[in-house]
Structure formats: C-alpha cells, structure tokens
C-alpha cells in the first residue's frame, strides 16, 4: 500500500478532485458533529409566529412550516444523512464481500448465492427499498437495512469476479504450491489485491445511500420526521415548493453538495488506485 503513504500534498496535486471532495466532506462531517457549537438554536424548537419565513438575518436559511430554524435543522440533519450513507456503505460492503468470497471459493454456494443476487438485482434498487419499507415500519434502522440490501449484489459480484481471477494469478498459484492454506491465501493474498475496487465502490454506495434515503423520505417511506435528515426536511417542504421554495432548496443543495463530494472522492480513489496507472514501472 505504498500509494496510501504518499504525502498529502502530492495527492492533492495529482488528484485535485479527490482532495476537494475530501475537504468538503470533512467540513460537512465537522459541522454535523459540532452542531451545538455551530448554532445555538434547537432544531426542534417550534415557533408558530415564524412559519415559513424566507431567509433573513435571524434565520439565514429561513424557517419551515412549523417555524423551526432551517439552518439548525440542516446542520443537525447532516448527522442522520451522513450516518446512513456510511452505515449502508459499511453493511453492504461487508456483506457483499463475504458473499462474494464464499461464492468465489465454494462451487455449490456460488450457484445458489449468485442466483439470489441476480434476483435482488432484477428489482430496481429504489423500488426494492420502497417495497421493503412498505412491509416494515419507518424506523431509521429499517431504512438502513432496506437500502443496504439493494447495494449488496454489486459488491458481491465484484468480489466474486476478483476472487475468481486472483485465484488463477501466478503469485497465488506460487503460494498454493508452497502449501499455504486457503484462509491465509484469501486474507493475505486475495483480499488486499482486490481491495481497491471494493473501496471505490463503497464510496459510490455511500453516495447512493444518501440519495436513496432522500428519495424514500420524498415519497413518504423514509425516516420518521422526529429526527431531521436532509431528506425528510425537504420532504416536509415539498407541498409549498412553488410559494416557499427555500424550504426545499437549501436541504436539496446541501444534499447535492454532499453527494457530489462523496462521488469526487470515489472518482479520485478510482484514478489513484487504478492498477493500470503504472504499477509496473
């Protein structure tokens, strides 16, 4: 992993998109984590005298239909939206990697697992999440699980493909010939060499999950409105979008920026970890 220990400045010069995306993401995470320091306002404080006010010095992003401060809600909302992104990326990547490894190594399991993955993939991911949410209650945990399930097959296929080709790689055959066991081969030789595309896809999953969460909120199958997320803040404002566009515009803007930042990190990592970018020379 010599590439990882490159000096930060060099990464920033060679992959400006990666650096910019990471900086934006870090800023958003910091704002969400330190929300009470950023704004003293309680995001749940209802002020019926201040309903749906346009941005002003008191409320820089304006207020929502219940007179709650939008800036505070968006800052706090980042906690949930970003956590869902990270949680889905982690769950789907770990589950997909395990499934892909098993399928790549066990013939019998391969047939069964990959048919299941094909089945899951045949349902468009947003619809799958919608269907799963329709069957369950709208809790945060259920939203995470529903979005994760549709993300698993992509990782599983990727890992299975890498396992199948790396198993035949000459250096792996050399290790097999040395009498090294399967477990050690998987964890020391195959996974580290398959890691780059898995990491890149995990970032894309993270971006996709934040988007899916917002879509679920938008059609009324998302996280409960008691805890603000960028998705449900926007969903609450959507009936008034023609007259009070700011209630939709600000959370949508922040969400877009966050997704863009994650995608930029993903693209940057992809370019940086690309084995064709001259490992041999």
């Amino acid at each position: 992993m010599a590439a990882i220990t490159l000096p930060m400045r060099r990464i920033a010069r060679r992959h400006p998109g990666l650096a910019l995306g990471a900086a934006i993401l870090a800023a958003l995470c910091l704002l969400a984590l330190c929300a009470p320091l950023v704004t003293p306002v309680d995001p749940g404080f209802v002020d019926m005298s201040q309903r749906a006010k346009a941005p002003s010095w008191d409320h820089i992003f304006g207020t929502d239909m219940l007179g709650r401060d939008l800036f505070a809600r968006i800052i706090y909302g980042g906690r949930l939206s970003l956590s869902i992104g990270v949680a889905v990326a982690l769950i789907a990547t770990v589950a997909g990697t395990v499934i892909g490894l098993v399928a790549g190594y066990v013939r019998l399991a391969d047939a069964i697992l990959m048919r299941i993955m094909d089945g899951v993939m045949s349902i468009p991911s947003v619809l799958l999440a919608v269907a799963l949410m329709a069957l369950s209650t709208g809790s945060i945990g259920n939203v995470i699980v529903a979005i994760s399930i549709s993300g698993i097959p992509r990782i599983a296929r990727l890992v299975r493909g890498s396992v199948l080709s790396l198993r035949e790689a000459v250096f792996v055959e050399a290790v097999i010939g040395g009498g090294v066991g399967t477990g050690r081969i998987i964890f020391r030789h195959i996974l580290p060499n398959a890691a780059a595309p898995i990491i890149v896809n995990a970032t894309y999953l993270c971006a996709g999950a934040m988007l899916s969460e917002a879509v679920l909120c938008f059609i009324g199958a998302g996280t409960p409105p008691t805890v603000p997320s960028w998705g449900n803040i926007m969903a609450e404002g959507r009936t008034l979008w023609m007259v009070k566009p700011h209630i939709v515009a600000f959370p949508a803007l922040i969400l877009s920026i966050a997704i863009l930042a994650v995608n930029m990190v993903g693209d940057g990592l992809r370019d940086m970890l690309d084995p064709r970018a001259g490992r041999r020379n």
Partner: peptide
C-alpha cells in the same frame, strides 16, 4: 458529468420547474 450524476432527481425537477415554468 460528475456534478449532474450527483444532483438528486427532485432537486433537478424543482429547480427546472421553478426557473423555466414559474
């Protein structure tokens, strides 16, 4: 491409409708 891939559909929709229709 990376920007337009990152904008959620509803954000595009509302922005477009607000500008070109309203």
């Amino acid at each position: 491409a990376v920007v337009s891939f990152s904008i959620p559909v509803f954000a595009c929709g509302y922005a477009g409708a607000w500008l070109f229709a309203l």
